[in-house]
Simulated assay, not measured.
Amino acid sequence: VGIKGNGKHPTNRGRLGPKGENQWYANNSTDRLVTPLIRNSSGELTPATWDEAMNLIVTKTKKSLKEKGANSISIYSTGQGFLEDYY
Rank of each mutant, 00 (worst) to 15 (best):
A53M: 06
A48K: 02
I38M: 03
Y87V: 09
T46Q: 04
G5W: 01
E67K: 05
P10H: 11
T61A: 12
G20H: 07
G7S: 13
T59V: 04
L83D: 11
V58A: 15
E67T: 06
I75K: 09
K60T: 10
L83F: 07
L33K: 09
V1Y: 05
G5H: 03
I57W: 07
S42A: 03
G20T: 09
A53Y: 06
D31G: 01
M54I: 14
R13N: 14
K68P: 01
A70P: 15
T59A: 09
N55S: 14
R13I: 06
K63R: 06
R39D: 04
T11Y: 13
Y86A: 12
R13E: 12
T46G: 00
A70Y: 14
P36T: 00
W50Q: 08
S29C: 05
L16R: 08
L37W: 01
R15A: 11
G5S: 04
E44C: 05
H9Q: 13
R13K: 15
R39M: 14
L65G: 09
W24L: 07
D31W: 00
G2Y: 09
W50S: 09
T35M: 01
K62N: 09
K4I: 09
E21M: 15
T59I: 07
S29V: 00
T61V: 05
H9R: 14
N12G: 10
G81K: 13
N40T: 02
S72V: 11
V1N: 07
A48Q: 01
K8G: 10
S64N: 06
L65N: 10
V34E: 05
L16V: 11
K66T: 05
T59C: 05
G20P: 05
G17N: 15
T30M: 00
L16S: 11
D31P: 01
K8C: 04
G43V: 09
A70M: 14
T46W: 00
K19N: 14
Y87L: 09
F82Q: 14
I73V: 10
Y87G: 09
I38V: 07
G43Y: 07
T59D: 11
R15P: 04
K63Y: 03
L56Q: 13
N40C: 02
P10R: 13
E52V: 03
D31H: 00
